[in-house]
């Protein structure tokens, strides 16, 4: 059972909080900006073997860094339900008449929306640095950003139901989000990995998300963009189902 107004109000709350946390908006763009700026400068003359010569490294990197922003922001928003639990607000929602499924969906959509906005902010920042994406491709990139954002917010919500308190947060970031990021081909083509590592990248949903973003923005991709769309799309649906089931089972004592 899903109440649309319940989803809407939870989404609205996330957005209000997002707009107010200006320092977080700027702060969380810092690391990806430096990744883009310094890696871009450092490797600007390097030739990556599997990359066609007419693609500059900064053009290759920018879609990856935008994906990185979406990945980190969405996982962070999903897991932040643990904060709500810690600070008690989750109880206010849990004793209300709206269903658990509604709560999980509302949080997922709210978190995903903020992640997409962050993604576009990063795109704007990379434009300033010198990245020139295809304007029409930005529409396609929006689709991929939505799918990445929903996948990883949902995953964050699912993880939050298994966490006792906020202390596990660092663990999630370092041992879950970073490996996903490095194994996604965001910084260099996954073809550059040794055979046995490359194997893992094919099971990483973000690999397809990043590849789809790159196809949208610079018309270069390692896979067929349709396969990218299917892979990340199916994964996002799967995650939503899992996260609502897990969330439905949680007890807030």
């Amino acid at each position: 059972m899903v109440e649309a107004y319940g989803v809407y109000i939870l989404w609205l709350r996330d957005l209000k909080r997002y707009v107010r946390a200006r320092s977080r908006i700027i702060g969380s763009l810092g690391m990806p900006l430096f990744f883009l700026a310094f890696l871009g400068m450092g490797f600007r003359r390097a030739q990556i073997p599997s990359l066609p010569g007419d693609i500059s490294y900064i053009d290759f990197l920018a879609p990856g860094v935008v994906s990185m922003v979406v990945l980190f922001t969405s996982t962070f928003s999903g897991v932040s339900i643990v904060w709500d639990r810690q600070f008690g607000f989750l109880r206010e929602i849990m004793v209300s008449p709206i269903s658990r499924t509604t709560i999980a969906l509302g949080r997922t959509l709210g978190g995903a929306t903020t992640a997409i906005i962050q993604g576009f902010l990063m795109l704007a920042v990379s434009y300033i640095i010198g990245f020139r994406p295809d304007p029409i491709g930005m529409v396609y990139s929006f689709v991929f950003m939505v799918l990445i954002a929903i996948s990883f917010t949902g995953l964050g919500v699912a993880i939050s139901t298994l966490m006792e308190d906020i202390h596990g947060f660092q663990l999630v970031i370092n041992f879950f989000v970073f490996p996903i990021f490095f194994l996604s081909g965001a910084l260099f083509p996954v073809k550059e990995f040794p055979e046995f590592i490359r194997f893992f990248t094919y099971f990483n949903p973000l690999t397809y998300g990043v590849d789809g973003m790159r196809w949208s923005l610079i018309h270069y991709s390692e896979f067929n963009p349709f396969i990218d769309f299917l892979a990340i799309g199916i994964f996002s649906i799967f995650v939503i189902i899992i996260s609502t089931i897990l969330f439905d089972r949680t007890e807030v004592g």
Partner: peptide, 14 residues
């Protein structure tokens, strides 16, 4: 029903 819990449950950012 309405409930006021022992621990605070307000959203302090709102």
């Amino acid at each position: 029903i309405g409930i006021v819990f022992q621990e605070p449950t307000l959203d302090v950012e709102l």
